[in-house]
Design a protein around this nucleic acid. Sequence first.
DNA 1: ATGTCACCTGGTAGGTGA
Length: 254
Amino acid sequence: MKLATWNVNSLAVRLPQALAWLAEHRPDVLVLQETKLADDKFPHADFEAAGWHAQWLGQKTYNGVALLSRSEADGVVRNIPGFSDDQARVIAATVDGVRTIGAYFPNGQEPGSDKFAYKMRWMGALRDWVRAEMAQHPQLVLMGDFNIAPEDRDVHDPIAWAGKIHCTDEEREHFRQLLGLGLVDAFRLFDQPPKSWSWWDYRNLAFRKNQGLRIDHILVSEVLRPRVKACTIDKLPRKAERPSDHAPVVAEIG
DNA sequence: ATGTCACCTGGTAGGTGA
């Protein structure tokens, strides 16, 4: 099966691109982040007309997540159970026997800020919940926009980014704790081209100069690990007219 | 140093978030 994650930075703007990408790649599951749509504005009819099941959790202006699947999605969970949150960041469901969690991690803005503290709290709650989910569902995938570059090789300029948001020791420690639950970064199961990024700032001609970060990830549980056949970043949508600043990440599981 | 994009409010620009 094919699983994918994509931060679309407004589904109102990117709906045509999302539909085109789905039609071309036919993933079994695609999770979206930053839909930026209130629930009553979510274009479920457009997805359904194209043959996709849709689950979503949104809010006006900010955040918002969705899960699109070819098969029906069961056991849908919206946001982290037990963690009171007015931001729409998590959608989870079981599709074809695989527990699939789509997450939009907080950006965190700047170390020491209130938003950074929220990011830490949110990641702690996510970790505890994912641990419980894994106990129930050995076949589990956690994917989305983590807003963390796990290692220096995931950063175009590690010196300039040292200690900055996405690259702090605290964020990287949280990423390692997720791996410590028994998850593995699917992208690093394979030889990859150096300077592989999933996000490029809209500013400073960053995409043209390939100045980016790898902050979008697909983590798979240990039982799925031997079944992962490939994991790639699809840069093509980043070259389109009116692109999202993120590229889709895709994993193939046999 | 910011050469961007998307969204909102309140007003035809400015602020916020990423």
